[in-house]
Design a protein around this nucleic acid. Structure first.
Lengths: 197, 197
DNA sequence: TGCTGAACTCTACGGCTGATGAAATAAGAG
DNA sequence: CTCTTATTTCATCAGCCGTAGAGTTCAGCA
């Protein structure tokens, strides 16, 4: 009768890190920063809360380790720009709506939005992330002087759609068909990018 | 030597209720629902925390008592519609940007946004508020079939502007002059309301 | 004047929070 | 085989949270 060890390292491959990250991603995404606790993440990951401190230092570091865009802009952007400048609005709108319709994409995007809304530090993180990863490259692809401003206008409509359709869930926008929504905002994005301001 | 009373009712007019509401408005607006505590509201109001329970029952009731739009839609909307349907977009854009530029208007609007982003219950409250108070009347003034959908699109651009310009503070949108921003989004709102979708 | 109820303070409870430090155990390098 | 290091558990800390209850004082009315 060997007693079951009650502490100490476990035999075999450890999937603890991945479990923590997965649980953190889900809970931060669904409930925002403040309402998810280190303890609840640990519980969902089937792990002692102290392990989170051990691996990531503190809650905020875990958050920043987990915050990421639901797509890779450097891979996506060229595709959206491929059909010429007059199609960017439509492609952008369809891509944005498409991301928000996939469960994982929506979860991650709303995680960013929720966190930015409640935590100033997270807002800074999100600002730098989307500025360098999305708006910067997007602006760089536009052959006009005020490209950064135009790109940030695009950002405002996209994040506004996320808020109105998924967070606040205002009707009938929330239950409108994705293709219709994409078609509705496509001209907006197109004008922000290439039209007269 | 009459000892100073340490508890009990104060003589004279009591401004406690107003102080509590003012402090609550400010803190909910600036920090969101979760990050403002009953205790900190009480401290700012110079009041015992139990008085908040006494007057409002609990934190959530205080929040709903304090949540309100930074303007009165029933008074404002007619003015925005007065110049005919082709001017609504411009007037709406200028009004929205104007509200967000005033400290009080911005504070209250961001309070709604922040709360909706973090608290599902607050999201419900905000949804009903803007649906019945703003989008409903706005849609009623439009002589088209899909007016509610059009109104909710307008809402998405406005809330998106609030998020991008004031919460995330993405540049150069955040420091762009208000008139320029209003002029940029006016055609968007106009198309959402009366243009082709 | 006396009574009732509203305004107000104090104390405190139970619970959850993020974080720490020590001890236990196994993996892996030498 | 041994030693170091990484992983894991446990116990616990100090702090804040929302809320309840009891007690104190005053205002307004009969």
């Amino acid at each position: 009768m060997t007693a079951r060890p009650r502490s100490g390292r476990r035999p075999g491959d450890s999937k603890t890190r991945e479990a923590i990250l997965a649980a953190a991603r889900q809970q931060f995404g669904e409930q925002g920063y403040d309402r998810t606790s280190v303890r609840s993440i640990a519980a969902q990951a089937g792990v002692d809360p102290a392990l989170i401190t051990h691996f990531h230092g503190n809650k905020q570091a875990l958050f920043t380790a987990v915050v990421e865009l639901p797509f890779e802009p450097r891979k996506v952007l060229p595709r959206l720009l491929a059909d010429g400048p007059e199609q960017v609005g439509r492609h952008l709108a369809e891509f944005a709506v498409g991301v928000m319709e996939s469960p994982d994409g929506r979860r991650r995007l709303l995680g960013l939005v929720r966190a930015a809304a409640s935590e100033p530090e997270a807002a800074r993180l999100v600002r730098e992330l989307i500025t360098t990863e999305i708006l910067g490259p997007l602006a760089a692809a536009l052959p006009v002087e005020d490209a950064p401003y135009r790109a940030s206008l695009v950002g405002s409509q996209v994040v506004g759609l996320a808020m109105a359709r998924y967070v606040v869930a205002v009707e009938p926008l929330a239950s409108q068909r994705p293709e219709v929504v994409a078609a509705s905002i496509a001209p907006t994005l197109q004008r922000y990018l290439t039209g007269p301001l």
